[in-house]
């Protein structure tokens, strides 16, 4: 008899857990689907940056150029995000570049992960351009990039190098700064970038 009781008790415990699980399953549709592809979210960030960064006067009347250099990871997500959007009356133009050349009408330059091996020369070239460089590889800001989008524990994290934005003459809003990790150029990277410039 005792044994039977014990068995029953054990079963209830087991069932309680199953019921709990099932209850959770019921709630699944209620939980708002928040997961998105990494590059859909990163594309949204590129669009948002335009509202939180001020470019120097000279570049103010052109449409906002978002350029992607290297192998495009967005697969159309960038176009979908900026389609029909304007900021301060300015439309967006998305361009894909094989390599950066001076004079390209870009405000934001997204450097794809494929350019990993060529970062230093590229960032050296960008040093005094009024362009917000956005990277997709660890250590991007440390070698002189302006903003890096990294994924930590499944969430996108922002890193900003203020020396880089200052050199480019960009004003970054305090709102954006408050949400990002501030990174400084490492000494050797700064000198390497100088070397390229000289």
């Amino acid at each position: 008899m005792d044994l039977l009781k014990q068995f029953r008790r054990r079963q209830t415990r087991w069932w309680d857990l199953v019921v709990l699980w099932a209850a959770l399953a019921q709630m699944a549709p209620l939980l708002s689907p928040q997961s998105s592809g990494e590059y859909e979210v990163k594309a949204a960030f590129l669009y948002k940056f335009a509202s939180f960064v001020e470019w120097p006067e000279a570049t103010r009347d052109e449409p906002l150029g978002i350029c992607v250099v290297g192998k495009d990871p967005f697969g159309g997500a960038l176009e979908r995000v900026v389609e029909g959007k304007t900021i301060g009356g300015r439309e967006f133009v998305v361009r894909r570049l094989k390599a950066w050349q001076a004079g390209e009408p870009c405000h934001i330059l997204f450097v794809a992960a494929s350019e990993k091996q060529r970062l230093r020369p590229l960032l050296g070239q960008m040093r005094h351009e009024a362009i917000l460089t956005v990277g997709d590889v660890p250590g991007f800001c440390e070698i002189g990039g302006a903003i890096n989008l990294s994924v930590v524990e499944s969430r996108v994290k922002l890193e900003i190098n203020l020396d880089a934005t200052a050199r480019s003459g960009l004003q970054v809003s305090s709102k954006l700064l408050s949400l990002a990790r501030i990174v400084r150029s490492t000494a050797s990277a700064a000198s390497a970038a100088n070397g390229v410039r000289n």
Binding site: Q34, S35, G37, V151, S154, R155, L158
Partner: peptide, 8 residues
């Protein structure tokens, strides 16, 4: 945006 989980 910072709070969205991304799949990589």
């Amino acid at each position: 945006l910072l709070d969205i989980q991304v799949t990589t």
